[in-house]
Design a protein around this nucleic acid. Structure first.
Lengths: 90, 90
DNA sequence: GACATATTTAGATATTTGTATAAATATCTC
DNA sequence: GAGATATTTATACAAATATCTAAATATGTC
């Protein structure tokens, strides 16, 4: 299991970004608006998420649109279920 | 979802400790033996895992025995499945 | 090409974190 | 209670990280 994945998930801002992307794909600006920190800081977080392959980015004219990479989340769930038997939940 | 949980999972040594505890409960010393770092450093990691409620500790004479708290892992899996739809894996 | 908008990259700084050594605490045995 | 073993706590420090401002890059419009 890639170390960058868990490190990426360790930050609450990044987890919030992922939750936002659950609803729909968003541009970097739309994401940055949701946080009280500088756009450049959000851009940094997006870079971390992308490096961990948790999101994918695609340019759309001036904008860059981000979307969740759900495949990786399935890997995370599988990691926990196989190693720690988390499957037997109600 | 508690921030300390994901931060605790972000370190590879701590994830290895959790995997060791999957097989069976272990004392602090038995755990520390498995790593090339100082016992005190492993103790620190155990403290982080305990603070995140990922493990529980119980004194056994001179020793302190650690065990996985599987309940929390189920919460992690639930977190990912509900938010990111990771349930539909093969 | 000049200017505006969207986003990232670069450089700086303060905080957090992983590790080490040394000291402290707890239990056991004599 | 003195000494041995097991573990944690205290302190220090280097490395990683989250944030900022400013500069750079990319696209669109005129």
């Amino acid at each position: 299991m890639d170390d960058s994945l868990f490190r990426a998930l360790a930050d609450p801002t990044r987890r919030k970004i992922l939750e936002l992307l659950t609803a729909k794909d968003l541009t970097a600006g739309e994401i940055a608006e949701q946080f009280p920190i500088a756009f450049a800081s959000v851009s940094h977080h997006l870079g971390v998420l992308k490096a961990a392959d948790l999101v994918a980015a695609e340019r759309e004219g001036q904008f860059i649109r981000y979307r969740l990479n759900t495949t990786v989340f399935q890997e995370v769930v599988r990691y926990f279920m196989t190693r720690f038997g988390g499957a037997n939940n109600a």
